[in-house]
Design a protein around this nucleic acid. Structure first.
Lengths: 77, 77
DNA sequence: ATGTAGACTGCTGTCGACA
DNA sequence: GTGTCGACAGCAGTCTACA
């Protein structure tokens, strides 16, 4: 599976846990809401600075975000 | 510390462990060598697709790459 | 509330040359 | 082997509007 999809799924997972809407998360992370939507759907190749902003808004650390079997393997391509 | 610097340091750490030159790593990851240099020095905001390529070339997983105290805190800005 | 589309700006990422 | 400097194409990221 594409790295973008893995990241999108994981963001959605934490977002719904917090019961935030995409719009609310976008506002909290100070990122455009249409962009958050496309990132969640694996359509965008997000940069680390904006990824960090999103993950921080999800109230976790980068370490926790990537601490999943989904990010174990090699290249997903 | 800036997230870009943290990532750059970590890449350098694993690269030197493998005794690869920046050029060799760039070749292995199929990324421009000048770009690898600037990423290592925290000057570039790398995207997840190219970060994954680099980390794969370092023979580790994303999970392992971010599994460090450096990536624990909140926003580094 | 989610998702798509279009148009736009600025930066990511490439490449050649050089100290 | 490392790092910088242009110059460049293409895409990341913003914004408005709509179903």
């Amino acid at each position: 599976m594409d790295i973008r999809k893995k990241i999108g799924l994981r963001i959605k997972e934490y977002r719904t846990n917090l019961q935030l809407t995409q719009e609310a998360l976008a506002f909290k992370a100070e990122i455009d809401k249409t962009y958050v939507n496309e990132v969640e759907n694996g359509k965008r190749n997000i940069s680390v600075i904006n990824l960090e902003k999103l993950i921080f808004a999800l109230e976790i650390s980068l370490r926790e975000f990537f601490n999943s079997e989904a990010f174990d393997g090699g290249l997903t391509k």
